[in-house]
Design a protein around this nucleic acid. Structure first.
Lengths: 180, 180
DNA sequence: CCGCTCATGTAACTGGTTACATGATTTA
DNA sequence: TAAATCATGTAACCAGTTACATGAGCGG
């Protein structure tokens, strides 16, 4: 019934529920919390009311399941939920193709405010930190072979390529700073 | 006096005021509005109250200036504002080094939900749109030569490198989809 | 039995956006 | 003189986060 547009987070949740089958709000929440690209915190205050809204609007349905003696509410997509989700997938808005936000870029823009040595320190540390993030994404080849989730692999591949680009960029910045 | 931490937007505003010298809230607002990487909308409802807070806390001061017959309130950094801004520049938080959010990545992760032909269409369109954004950033060489803003150039360079990485990634996705 | 993870929830807050409103000045 | 731009502002809203709270079951 409700035709009100769903938020980005709500769409991500629909996607996870679709992928991970009947699952709890808690499961989805933990996925966001543990995600290495921290777009959403997975805060309870966001997730639980969100699932209630989604169910009331008919995008998901739940039933109380059991795992051992512990009870939990498990959600899955309705046909309506799946339709809405697929529609969202097909419509790529302009803003997603726009230049994505890189907080390091917005800092470097102002780096002339610092004396040369301090600027160098900032970039050195940033580079060290970004490099430290990379190995997490280079999945071990054996695990990658058996993967039956080609699109998850492609998502990881995005993280790798973009992170490498950021590293190369920071190295350029480093070289420019050295020549002063 | 107020030691309360400033938001990311507030820091960006301090940066612009530092770079563009005495300038109006309107000027800052327009910069955000016209920015090709739309992190902030530059909404009046954000900017004007923000400048009042910054002035009250002593980070900026303003005086009413004149340009022709039109009066306008121009802001510049205080010493305190500059100190705070430089401190922010020196402290790169972990989160800025983390994997940055790419909305196209979060879509592709779920792309198995679409039939192959529709998935191809989505990627084709995304690629077309991202490619269309690139030329804006390849600054004309003559303008770049005379540039006395090396850090602005580096910021643009970030946009170019990361956008190119996204394009190469989308091309990979395209190839994977073709092989099915 | 103590601490950890699973599981669910709410209240207060925050950092913005949207939409609206006003008026002066400049440009076509 | 009409339309666009400069310039400033407010009220209502929104999508999230933070912090807090509770309780059950599980492993050492």
């Amino acid at each position: 019934m409700t035709v009100s547009k769903l938020s980005e987070l709500e769409m991500q949740v629909l996607g996870v529920v679709w992928l991970d089958g009947p699952c709890t709000a808690y499961h989805v929440r933990e996925l966001f919390r543990k995600s290495p690209s921290p777009r959403y915190s997975g805060s309870a205050g966001a997730i639980y009311p969100l699932f209630r809204r989604l169910e009331q609007a008919g995008y998901v349905i739940s039933k109380v399941g059991r795992q051992g003696k512990r009870s939990k509410r498990e959600f899955r997509l309705t046909r309506r939920g799946m339709t809405t989700f697929k529609k969202w997938l097909r419509e790529v808005p302009d803003i997603e193709a726009a230049v994505i936000h890189d907080p390091l870029r917005s800092r470097v823009r102002f780096l002339a405010a610092l004396p040369a040595d301090q600027a160098r320190d900032v970039i050195d540390e940033a580079l060290r930190k970004v490099r430290a993030k990379l190995p997490d994404y280079v999945v071990s080849p054996d695990r990658k072979q058996g993967s039956d989730q080609p699109f998850l692999d492609l998502a990881v591949r995005n993280a790798v390529l973009v992170t490498k680009a950021r590293i190369r960029w920071l190295e350029e910045v480093q070289r420019k700073l050295a020549k002063r």
